[in-house]
């Protein structure tokens, strides 16, 4: 199938340190790809490159065969590349509903309407409420986002991303910091989206057991390099990956040699 996201030799260096080093991936449409790797492997940096928060020092990114390497985050979102953040990143002093409503408004393309009252766009609010229901936040609509518990903020974050209705979803550790009881609900949401079979999802996650049954493929990053890419089963059996996770591996090249 034709790839929706493709990277070619994607690299970024901060001073002397190369955080992402020549990563080539190709994600087909409606694919579910998980990205794993130890801390500091460059997973989030890789996401930042895809979503445009950072510009690569080398390499190219393609979205539907169109080069987007130099585009701003705003342009990428408009094209259909939405992301959630690992650190909670919501509008603290606005209500939960308003947070999602802004995303719905952006998705509907109402950007510069300055004369009509926002309530006129009731449909935005209804849609926002629907998204909140999906992530089980519908009883917290009127609460100011700052006062939410951490796990709830994560859910809000996901609702905002979903409301953008982008073709590609970049999920950066959606369950990080959530209590154990909350995780299944979020997994359900992700499962629901996957079942819809009209989105391409890239997911960063630490909880291996949780992603194995969801993912179509798993890629492993280690020290910025792409260590392995394959089906969950292949990755589980891969020796290099195991040693990377279980320790003892400090330099990829030594293993290959």
């Amino acid at each position: 199938m034709e790839p929706i996201i493709e990277t070619k030799g994607l690299s970024i260096s901060f001073g002397g340190h190369t955080a992402v080093d020549g990563v080539n991936i190709s994600v087909p449409k409606n694919h579910f790809k998980s990205i794993i790797g130890p801390n500091g492997a460059g997973k989030t940096t890789f996401f930042n490159l895809l979503s445009g928060q950072l510009l690569p020092t080398k390499g190219q990114i393609f979205f539907r065969n169109k080069e987007i390497t130099k585009m701003s985050p705003t342009e990428r979102t408009c094209l259909g590349l939405g992301r959630s953040f690992q650190i909670t990143n919501v509008f603290p002093n606005l209500t939960v509903l308003e947070n999602v409503r802004l995303a719905v408004q952006s998705q509907a393309g109402t950007r510069f309407q300055m004369l009509a009252h926002y309530k006129k766009y009731r449909i935005f609010e209804e849609k926002a409420a629907e998204w909140l229901e999906l992530v089980l936040l519908d009883n917290k609509k009127e609460i100011v986002a700052r006062n939410l518990a951490h796990g709830e903020k994560r859910k809000l974050e996901i609702a905002m991303l979903l409301a953008l209705n982008t073709e590609v979803l970049l999920l950066d550790e959606p369950t990080a910091g959530m209590s154990v009881e909350e995780v299944p609900a979020i997994l359900d949401v992700i499962r629901k989206i996957k079942r819809g079979n009209d989105r391409t999802i890239l997911l960063i996650e630490h909880k291996m057991d949780m992603i194995m049954d969801l993912s179509d493929s798993v890629m492993v990053l280690f020290n910025g390099k792409l260590l392995a890419d394959g089906t969950p089963n292949e990755i589980m059996k891969n020796e290099i990956v195991q040693s990377a996770y279980l320790g003892g591996l400090y330099d990829v090249n030594s293993v290959k040699a």
Binding site: Q53, S72, P73, T74, N89, V90, L102, A103, M160, L164
Partner: peptide, 13 residues
């Protein structure tokens, strides 16, 4: 409230 987030929602600030 949050400039960066507004940007990633697709609004050009």
């Amino acid at each position: 409230e949050n400039e960066q987030r507004t940007e990633s929602l697709g609004y050009s600030i």
